[in-house]
């Protein structure tokens, strides 16, 4: 495969077993995924399909049982600042202000001047200017998540991993944050992998939607989304893709129930 050299992130034959009460649970089975630089990948699946585990392995918090992940040709074994991660909870340190939280993301070897410049840039990028000295508890959920994204991006990671980042937000804030992430992605050209259980969100954001099935967690289908951005959720092609992905989850039901915004 000549295109392999162009891959930024390459996952081959990845499997993961957990031991729970001396019973082996197969969390992930034979995951294969190639991600090109600057691509936006959405991973969608029901809860318990191992999609979060996959992200945790990529970021280095968990390790795989077998298989290999390479980032820019280098095998991944432990966490590193070349990968950023945003969790469902913002996980901002409550004792630090927004500015200090984002500065906490900076590489340890960055000089102070460099740090300040990067932090200011990223505060502006996520639209938190004016809230630099606020503490996390003073921010709304959406703003906390913005700060969390800025902290993850401040090192300019090769890939940003988003683990259901908008799952805890209300519907309006969620749509707003999806647009924000898209804007940031277009501005920064960072490769992004988003895990979600929201099919609309997956299609709205992703260049490709990876559909995962549960028990054992494996990739069932990869659906390319070639629609131009910004995407219209009520667009005919959008709805067709949604139907296609829906069918993967509810294939046994003769007529998938109506789905509208």
């Amino acid at each position: 495969m000549s295109s392999l050299t162009q891959q930024l992130l390459s996952i081959t034959g990845l499997s993961k077993q957990f031991a729970i009460n001396s019973e082996t649970v197969q969390a992930l089975t034979d995951i294969n995924l190639q991600v090109t630089p600057g691509e936006f990948i959405s991973i969608v699946g029901a809860s318990g399909c191992g999609k979060s585990t996959l992200l945790r392995i990529i970021v280095g918090l968990d390790s795989q049982s077998s298989g290999e992940i390479t980032l820019g040709g280098q095998a991944i074994h432990k966490p590193g600042v070349d990968r950023g991660m945003v969790f469902q909870e913002a996980r901002l340190l409550p004792w630090l202000t927004v500015r200090d939280n984002i500065a906490f993301g900076c590489r340890s070897n960055a000089t102070n001047v460099e740090k300040c410049r990067l932090v200011d840039e990223h505060i502006a990028l996520v639209g938190l200017a004016g809230f630099e000295s606020a503490y996390p508890h003073q921010l709304s959920g959406g703003m906390q998540q913005r700060a969390s994204i800025a902290r993850a991006l401040v090192n300019r990671p090769k890939v940003l991993l988003l683990d259901e980042p908008f799952g805890a937000l209300d519907a309006f804030t969620r749509i707003n944050m999806q647009q924000e992430v898209l804007r940031i992605w277009e501005a920064e050209k960072t490769t992004m992998i988003l895990v979600t259980h929201d099919i609309d969100e997956a299609i709205y954001l992703g260049d490709r939607v990876v559909v995962m099935s549960s028990r054992p967690g494996t990739i069932k289908k990869i659906v390319p989304v070639t629609l131009s951005r910004p995407r219209d959720r009520s667009d005919y092609d959008f709805v067709q893709i949604r139907k296609e992905i829906y069918a993967e989850f509810f294939e046994q039901s003769p007529k998938p129930f109506a789905y509208a915004i």
Binding site: P79, R91, S108
Partner: peptide, 12 residues
């Protein structure tokens, strides 16, 4: 959760 964040950010 905070320890995980610090691990990801390669903090000493």
């Amino acid at each position: 959760k905070y320890l995980e964040v610090a691990t990801i950010l390669e903090k000493s």
